[in-house]
Design a protein around this nucleic acid. Structure first.
Lengths: 136, 136
DNA sequence: GGTTTATACTTGCAAGATGCAAGTGAACTT
DNA sequence: AAGTTCACTTGCATCTTGCAAGTATAAACC
């Protein structure tokens, strides 16, 4: 989520990461691919994105023309978001990402060494736990 | 770069992003795939990763068994890193990422609206500029 | 027509991640 | 013995995220 002015290099991998390589953007794209359209639908996803982050990501995807805003007809308060054709092309990236996640990190990761995890990340290791988030 | 204890959801896409979905990890994997092995080789990449970040990412990839440390024989100071078989499987993800970047953001992005970019990212938009970094 | 409710945000602040320079110690080189 | 290289680690400033609370506009209800 970095404008072109501050891309780190011309490498296409680095550019792609500068555009969509953060913790949230691809999850919003995932939801769009699954047909979610409204602000509260994205909020309801289990990861519990915050409203300011969601708002920023939708604006960013819109600016890049990967998504577009569609005002709802019957209710002028509502705005729907949908992927553009360009946005649809992220499906392949998502598919490989999901495939990799399923092949290697569905179920068990294998034992991690807690000290090594803390050295690498500054966080504690442990079993799967839901973050508190605002959604029930 | 989040241990399993703090994964946001069981979605394989979200899990993958929690593991390798930050600004640097995949760039280190890219370099490993291109055959880079030593600390200073990664530092020399044009993106200009900082030493503390590189150190943390290599430790993280090692802990996940996506990479392994190989002590050099002739010089005990040096440590080589290489991808494990499991790490090699990221090649498909990288390939799609690079393909997408080349298809959509090589050369021009099309004009961005500076005000919209600032709203979405808090940064200014502009032409391509090298960040200062420590590498010449 | 005035109050209430819903939607899509924005703001403020605390916590966490990153960027950078400088420092450390063991291993080589001269 | 002194200097250099390598692979880190530390400290600190700055950028980014997370969360709660607030706001503006548009319907819905009475």
């Amino acid at each position: 989520m970095i404008p072109k002015s501050q891309w780190r290099s011309p490498c296409p991998i680095a550019c792609t990461l500068d555009i969509i390589g953060d913790r949230w953007t691809l999850l919003v794209v995932r939801d769009l691919l699954f047909g979610k359209r409204y602000f509260d639908e994205f909020l309801a996803s289990p990861e519990g994105i915050a409203t300011n982050i969601l708002s920023a990501r939708l604006a960013w995807l819109t600016e890049l023309k990967l998504a577009r805003r569609v005002p709802a007809e019957h209710d002028k308060r509502r705005v729907a978001y949908e992927l553009t054709d360009k946005g649809q092309t992220l499906k392949q990236v998502l598919r490989e990402t999901a495939r990799w996640g399923m092949a290697h990190f569905h179920g068990e990761t294998g034992p991690l060494n807690p000290a090594a995890v803390r050295r690498a990340t500054g966080r504690a290791a442990g079993g799967w736990v839901k973050r508190k988030g605002k959604r029930p």
